[in-house]
Amino acid sequence: MATVTTKPHAEPAVYVYEAPVRIWHWVNALSITLLAVTGYFIGSPLPTMPGEASDHFVMGYIRFVHFAAGYVLAIGFAGRFYWALVGNSHAREIFFHNILRKSYWSGLWHEIKWYLFLEKEPKAYTGHNPLAIFFMHWMFVWAVTFMIFTGFALYGEGAGYDSWQYTLFSSWIIPLMGQSQDVHTWHHLVMWVIVVFVIIHVYVAVREDIMSRQSIISSMISGWRSFKDARPPEDKDVN
């Protein structure tokens, strides 16, 4: 078997993902999985149950898991946003980033070309690369925000007129989107947006872990970013 030989070099590691970010990432991943599965079965329920209604609570349990996971997602997301304000610069990236910076767009273009196999080598980044930031922000942050708002609007319908969920969310979101049925449809559609995001996210994380110039998956477990070569990363002086 052939072995790849590289020149001896220092491998600096940078502490990128602080503990709250890492914990949030995995809790969030679990709750999204639960939400997508239970949400699908709320829209298209399982085959009918035999016997007496009092012997079963299938939809009840499915909906309970959905609501509980929804609360975990929402509270986690709020905590994650708080951490974006008080945490390190990498915690801020997916929420706030300077889109007027030229290096963001040139980096984004470079990354697109790397994914189209037009570049021989990717650039190294301590945080997210610009393409990752783009997708994280537009396809994840906004989609999850949308799901939290519409989710609470739908929950408020069951919780009733006097509930804070109804007052804060249902009362204006339902008329804004048309009627309850429209809110359901949009909530359902954006679930699929997030499913598509997850497919891309998992694939890209694995691919980058193998093919990029820095660690990816292990960083979300340990928090440390290590590099496969000694050349400085692109975003060393930016953040």
């Binding site: 196999f117 359902h188 699929w192 497919i199 694939y203």
Partner: peptide, 28 residues
Amino acid sequence: NADDIGIGAATVVGGAVAAHAAISALKR
């Protein structure tokens, strides 16, 4: 309906991901 569109999109993206992975492996 939402499911038809979602499953359609997920299938297309899933297929694209698989193809991309295959090309990536080949290139590597």
